[in-house]
Design a protein around this nucleic acid. Structure first.
Lengths: 189, 189
DNA sequence: ATCGCATCCCTAAAGCCTTTAGGCAAATCC
DNA sequence: GGATTTGCCTAAAGGCTTTAGGGATGCGAT
């Protein structure tokens, strides 16, 4: 029988794709082994069980998303940068729902610090550079951006906005405009 | 051996409490049976397995949260109502993290329609009544409220705002003030 | 070319969770 | 007090997780 030629990287990538197909919650070692045409036990050479697999998929997704965010923000500022970053999150979630879910996995402090997580905060701060806020206000605003991007994305993904008019794209545009206005007048709300 | 005297209601309530303790993802029939001092198979008279248990906990949490929301909004309007409703979600999530997680379980359309879910949309509309918006704008605003309440709550719950200053309460107050301002000027952003 | 070797994937097995089937006894109703 | 309901039990089958150890495969060296 020929070998499958697996590596940790290939296993994690296949796990991310599987999560996108069947949902991050359904990602298990045995299901992934079935997908790869391999016995479950064979995955244990590459990944330390289901929990480790999920954690690695989460780290992959965080990194991929941060990369896209960097691309989106580069060379833009103000309203344009805000929309570009927001669309990055929303688009990634629509394209890769399993990976996006994975980014919300609870990581221990050490793993989180070494992940691409901090890069996401940097992206928000980069967008906010165009709005000239005080240090404290910038922290509040970083949290507001996280709140709106993450909140809208997950509600849309979970079907909360489906089957009603106007469509969610219109609300998204409206909300981003509102967010821009709010940031422009943050010091005098 | 004396009987435990279980009913479906008691099982679901105990399940909700267990979810608050160990997390909604860890809520399983066998773990709950252990907690109740009963064999796993015995739960199957009251609940149709782990999935059904989780669904019932979700429905319970949605109803409890809607009840609290109704209390919070009653007799208030404008900024006061907005803060009261927001604090209800944030407070419930802090007090009952497992139950709050349960409210985000994907329900099939029929179950969702019969749940307390629609009451939550009504609560948002009740708060928005004080802001005099057009029909379409009100829908956008309902989604904005859901976005902000849900987004902030989950990020805070997942530890995203921990270990940094200023504390998250300050950001929450700031964000609610901003939201109020935004709703007051919604038509001319 | 083939020998040696690292390692990749396998079989085997133990443990836990889920779920169904059927039985005994406790509470309830007459 | 006896019959009935029903709540909780034991038993068992099937699947997922994880560990231990074995055989084959592909690569590099001779």
């Amino acid at each position: 029988m020929p070998r499958a030629g697996l590596t940790t990287e290939k296993v994690v990538l296949a796990g991310a794709d599987l999560a996108d197909e069947i949902g991050f919650a359904g990602l298990t070692a045995s299901e992934l082994a079935r997908r790869l045409g391999v016995r479950t036990a064979s995955l244990y050479s590459h990944v330390d069980g289901t929990d480790d697999l999920r954690k690695r998929v989460a780290l992959l997704a965080l990194a991929e998303l941060a990369d896209r965010g960097s691309d989106a923000v580069a060379g833009r500022s103000g309203h344009e940068a805000l929309v570009a970053l927001g669309d990055t999150y929303r688009g990634y979630a629509a394209e890769h729902p399993g990976r996006y879910d994975a980014t919300r996995l609870r990581l221990d402090a050490q793993t989180a610090a070494a992940s691409a997580g901090p890069r996401h905060a940097q992206l928000a701060r980069a967008v906010l550079r165009g709005y000239r806020l005080s240090a404290d206000d910038e922290t509040h605003a970083v949290r507001l951006l996280g709140t709106v991007f993450h909140g809208f994305t997950t509600l849309e993904l979970s079907g909360g906005f489906a089957h009603s008019t106007p469509d969610s794209q219109a609300s998204w545009a409206r909300i981003l405009d509102g967010l821009h206005h709010l940031l422009d007048h943050w010091s005098t709300p």
